[in-house]
Amino acid sequence: MSATDLDERPAPEPVSVPGAAEGASPLQLALRRLRSNKVALVATVVFLVVVVLCLLAPVYSAHIAHTGPNNNHLSDQVRVGGKLTDVVSVDGIPIGPTWHSRFLLGADTNGRDIAVRLLYGGRNSLEIGVIATLITLVGALVLGVAAGYFRGWTDTLISRALDLIWAFPALILGIALGVSLALGGISIGPLHLKGGSLLVPAFVIGVVYIPYVARPLRGEVLTLREREFVDAARILGFGRLRIILREILPNLASTLLVFGALQLAQSITLEAALSFLGAGVQAPNSSWGTMLSGAVQLVTTSPHLTLAPGLMLVIAVLSVNLIGDGLRAAFDPRASVRRGR
């Protein structure tokens, strides 16, 4: 048998063996795992319900409660269980939940409908949370990739800057920035925000968390950089920008998604804390945090003032946390917090 005979033989066909393991792309695997994760699915539904309810605030206010979030009803009366009661009693104690369309969850010391304020405030809380998360993700992505890919002086500079922000406990930095910017607003280059704008707390929260996400991203980029497919791209002559966009970024997608969900939960929580302390959302805007700010001292006389925004906060943050953990489990089952044996 000569060499030419070997050339003329047809190449052996790849043989399909019954019972061999099926392959699926990482994305397909992730979706499959996510779909079977009942807890994450329930959490997603719950969160969507919360979002929709808050978006429907104007509808609720106009058609069900018949009052706005800032309308005082100090001297009004409302029918409760057949009896006509003061919205705010003579000693200044507001009515509790009526479980009817008007003052469903009760009123606050200014006679305002809690349920309506809850939905309008929720819009602000969620909006700030989402914007802050976007700021964190984008900022962390740019800085993390630049530091991890280019290394050298770029890395040193960026890492030291991140360390600096990291040195402040998040809450304290948030308070410091929040106070400072609350009065004067921000004027950085083309960015002009008035002190009372909702974007100020969003900006503060977003920036505060950048190091927490940038560091892990930088670590991942450092590892990805050394992988063979990046070497292959380099050998093929791809420029650095192209390599970053085509090889590095797609591999960060799943990490970003997981971080996004977890950061959303963190941002909503931090906004509530800052607003509670007066360093976040400023009057006349409201959020769940501002609602809680006055409510806590009155918890002994009017617990509903604390429980209503408190429960909403817990539900929103818990559902986002569960979604985040579900995403983490979907992309890397070993990393999930809830992994069993």
């Binding site: 804390a273 809680l292 408190g310 906060l313 943050v317 946390n321």
Partner: peptide, 10 residues
Amino acid sequence: SAPAFVVGAV
């Protein structure tokens, strides 16, 4: 997920 101020107040 439960903020400290809510828990504390409750």
